[in-house]
Amino acid sequence: MDKRPNILQTSQLSVSVPSRTLVRDVTVGITENQVFGLIGPSGAGKSTVLRALNRMTDLVPGLKVTGDVQLHGRSIFAPGTDANALRAKVGMLFQQPVVFPASIVDNVLFGARRLQSLSKSVQAELAESALQEAALWSEVKDRLKAPAAKLSVGQQQRLCLARALATKPEVILMDEPTSALDPRSTEAIEALIKRLKSRHTIVLVTHNLRQARNVGDQLAFIGVRDGVGQLLCEGTVESVLNRTDVAEVDEYVCCQ
């Protein structure tokens, strides 16, 4: 077992809406500088668990989160916790790239510039380093002022990653970040994920077993049992995917 400390730890994390429980009792530890994959069938609550990790669940009226999530051993639900500061530390990449109707450079700095006051030169450096880190710099360095919407979808997704990186997050939550992308852009993002884990911890929701095998270090399988999403098994990628004794995993792996 890895001796590095868990940067994120959930204990009995459950999320419910007034009418039903979406996902129940998820307890996982996520080690630093790893890619932690969340896999499972659609609707099992993978994205919901992911969004609880940086309290994006707060934004949805009626959603109730119980149990706990600890970042560096401290509960993110503790009174006095600044949810906005938390989200800057635990950044997020969505399924569809969301670029703001602004220029490329304005998009990169969208969060960073508002979270702290930065001089013009620092802003330029930050934009460059974030775009470098997201492997987009060489493609856009001559047109930083161009509208971000002009980029291809794959480039837009890397721009969103650069925008998250610019706020210097420790953890990046990725919610099926390649499901809207073509194979080449997917490859680019996967290569990036592998590189990013040297400096960041990544929690990746994916429905793609090939991707899980390719980039994942640890996996958690969230499946539906008794009508409620729950953690059915976790461990290294191969150990989880070989759990043919868990019917849901077996079925899921077979069908892909």
Partner: peptide, 21 residues
């Protein structure tokens, strides 16, 4: 709503989201 979500995901506060988005 995706814009509001994306801005919140970056750590912007509600008043920052009101101004910026």
């Amino acid at each position: 709503a995706k814009y509001v979500e994306a801005a919140a995901g970056l750590g912007l506060s509600r008043s920052q989201i009101i101004w910026a988005v």
